[in-house]
């Protein structure tokens, strides 16, 4: 499986570290109630098909990417940097 790193180019998935579901919504830092954190930490949609997920290019630029990928075909549709640099596209 290859993932196109916006910084380094097309690279093998072995260069990346999978960081999991990018759709889980992290509560704001100040949130004190356990329940929204339980949802964030434990609950997953786990779709068969298109999925947004975090991958870190650990053996490259170390940037975190949000990758849109099909979990059944392993087809990678796009990868963008997380945060402000990834928003422009």
């Amino acid at each position: 499986m290859l993932i196109p790193c916006p910084v380094c180019g097309m690279r093998d998935a072995g260069e990346y570290h999978y960081r999991g579901d990018a759709t889980a919504e992290r509560p704001p830092l100040a949130e004190e109630a356990a329940e929204p954190w339980v949802r964030y930490v434990y609950e997953r949609q786990n779709p068969r098909g298109e999925h947004l997920e975090f991958w870190q290019h650990v053996h490259g630029c170390r940037q975190f990417l949000v990758v849109r990928r099909n979990t059944e075909t392993h087809e990678v549709f796009e990868a963008r940097l997380v945060g402000p640099f990834g928003q422009g596209e």
């Binding site: 998935a13 072995g14 999978y18 999991g20 997920e53 979990t71 075909t73």
Partner: peptide, 13 residues
Amino acid sequence: DFYNSYARRGNLA
């Protein structure tokens, strides 16, 4: 293989 998958197919690494 460490990533979410519904494919009965792994990768080479």
